[in-house]
């Protein structure tokens, strides 16, 4: 078979109207797995949110560990949202989205971590000011 008469749709398995479609068509999806995904997403999110609010207010956890716990819970909840609400999957129709997401996370990390790093370095190297100079920098009320 030459390349010219190659028909890509032959390889998709011509299983009726679901498979034999022009570009732009899409198979209809059942509602069932969307509902179960939403239920799961809500359940996990409620658990993680409740845990985050509990961790922020409790004295049971060693103080300096609380921000770490909050960040871990937030990242977990973002993952739950991505999987159950935004439907990011490992499927072949999602590989481009996952790559773009990885790049987005990289950029977000560079912006946030880079800003904090640079600004803390600047503050560290700033000339110490006495209280009088500090007051001159306050807005005049």
């Amino acid at each position: 078979m030459s390349d010219l008469d190659f028909d890509p749709h032959q390889y998709s398995g011509t299983a009726g109207d679901r498979e034999d479609h022009a570009p732009g068509d899409e198979p209809e999806e059942s509602a069932g797995h969307w509902i179960s995904n939403s239920n799961l997403g809500l359940g996990f999110s409620v658990l993680l949110t409740a845990a985050a609010f509990w961790a922020a207010g409790t004295h049971l956890i060693w103080g300096p560990a609380v921000p770490v716990a909050l960040i871990v819970l937030a990242i977990a909840q973002m993952g739950v949202h991505l999987v159950f609400f935004l439907h990011v999957t490992t499927g072949p129709d999602n590989t481009n989205n996952v790559l773009a997401l990885a790049f987005g996370i990289l950029v977000v990390f560079l912006i946030v971590a880079g800003s904090l790093w640079i600004m803390s370095n600047l503050q560290h190297n700033m000339m110490p000011m006495d209280a009088n100079q500090m007051n001159q920098m306050q807005p005049q009320m």
């Binding site: 890509p8 390889y11 498979e19 570009p23 732009g24 899409e26 198979p27 499927g91 072949p92 129709d93």
Partner: peptide
């Protein structure tokens, strides 16, 4: 078909 991968033609809109 429809995922835009392999030899199955362009992805769904």
């Amino acid at each position: 078909a429809g995922t835009g991968h392999g030899t199955t033609g362009p992805a769904h809109k």
